[in-house]
Computed example of a mutant assay.
Amino acid sequence: MTTFSSDVVDAILGHMNGDHTADNLAIVRAFAEPAATSATMTGLDELGGTWDAIVDGEAQPVTIPWLGTVAERADVRREVVALYDAAVERLGLPARETH
C-alpha cells in the first residue's frame, strides 16, 4: 500500500482546489454525482481520489478510483489528467489544449 505524506497530499489538494476547480467538478459529474454543482478534492491515496460533491446544497463525499496504477506522486498527476480526459469525453465537453 502506498501512503503519501501529508505534505504531498496537501500540495496536490491545494493545486487541484486552487487551479482546477472546473476539472474537479467535471470528474465528479462524470463518475459519481451528475447533479453536483461544485466539487472539492479532499483526499487521495493509491486507490483513488476523494471529493466533496455539493448536490442540492449538501456535501456528499465521493471516492473515484484511478484508471491506472498509482505508486508514486508523479502517478497522481497522470491519473487526474486521465480522469479529466475521460470525464470530458463522457460529458461531451470541449477538450482543453493543455493540462
Rank of each mutant, 00 (worst) to 15 (best):
E46L: 08
E58Y: 04
V80A: 06
A36T: 03
S5Q: 11
G43A: 14
P65Q: 08
Y84L: 12
D10V: 10
A59F: 00
P61R: 10
P61Y: 08
A39L: 00
R77H: 11
P34G: 10
L93V: 03
T42H: 05
T3F: 11
G57Y: 04
F4I: 06
S38K: 05
A30G: 09
D7T: 13
G18W: 10
W66L: 05
A11M: 06
Q60R: 15
I64V: 13
V28G: 01
G92H: 06
R73Q: 07
I27W: 01
T3E: 15
P34H: 10
A11P: 01
A95G: 01
T37Y: 03
V8H: 07
V80F: 15
A26V: 07
P34V: 08
T69C: 07
G14C: 07
P34D: 09
A59M: 04
D23S: 13
P34N: 05
V28T: 06
E72G: 09
Q60S: 08
I12A: 06
L25C: 07
A36S: 09
T40C: 04
H99W: 14
V81M: 10
V80N: 04
W51I: 00
V55T: 12
R78E: 10
A82M: 10
V70G: 00
A32M: 03
M1N: 12
G57Q: 12
N17D: 09
D52H: 12
R77N: 14
D56K: 01
A71R: 13
P61T: 09
R77V: 06
V70W: 00
D10R: 10
P65V: 06
A36W: 03
D7S: 09
G49D: 04
E58F: 02
L91S: 04
P94V: 11
S5V: 10
L44R: 02
N24L: 07
F31D: 00
N17T: 08
E33F: 02
L13S: 03
D19A: 15
T50H: 05
L93K: 04
D52S: 15
A39H: 00
E89T: 13
L83S: 01
